[in-house]
């Protein structure tokens, strides 16, 4: 279970929150001009990153505020928390060593991130 540092309430258990998925997806500026593929991209296609992901969370059983979290989806490590409307912080060297974030041989599940 994650321990999430709500920017308004402080650290709380993940059970109090709900995840709103990938952050910084902008609503198209000219919706009538979009073709079907562009709509599909906006509505359905997701980066689904293994590694550093910027995502939205809502403190749904607390202050009910939305905010953003930068989390490593390979290890579930929370790297930064920032408010809605703020630019995502630039974090260094967050790509897994191999594409799946695991050692080249075998299927261990520990973090191979360099910090």
């Amino acid at each position: 279970m994650l321990l999430i540092n709500c920017p308004y309430c402080g650290e709380r258990e993940q059970e109090e929150f709900s995840c709103g998925g990938e952050a910084h997806i902008e609503r198209p500026k000219n919706p009538p001009e979009l073709n079907d593929d562009q709509w599909a991209d906006y509505l359905f296609l997701r980066q689904n990153i293994k590694g550093l992901q910027y995502e939205r969370w809502n403190h749904s059983f607390g202050c009910r505020q939305w905010f953003n979290v930068a989390r490593n989806t390979a290890t579930d490590e929370i790297l930064a928390v920032y408010k809605m409307g703020e630019k995502p912080p630039e974090l260094k060297s967050n790509d897994p060593v191999t594409p799946c974030g695991e050692p080249a041989i075998g299927s261990g599940n520990f973090s191979t991130f360099k910090k």
Binding site: L2, E15, N48, I49, A74
Partner: peptide, 13 residues
């Protein structure tokens, strides 16, 4: 679990 993860483990809740 209600969030994306590749960690092969989830929350106790």
């Amino acid at each position: 679990d209600g969030y994306n993860s590749y960690s092969q483990r989830g929350g106790f809740n």
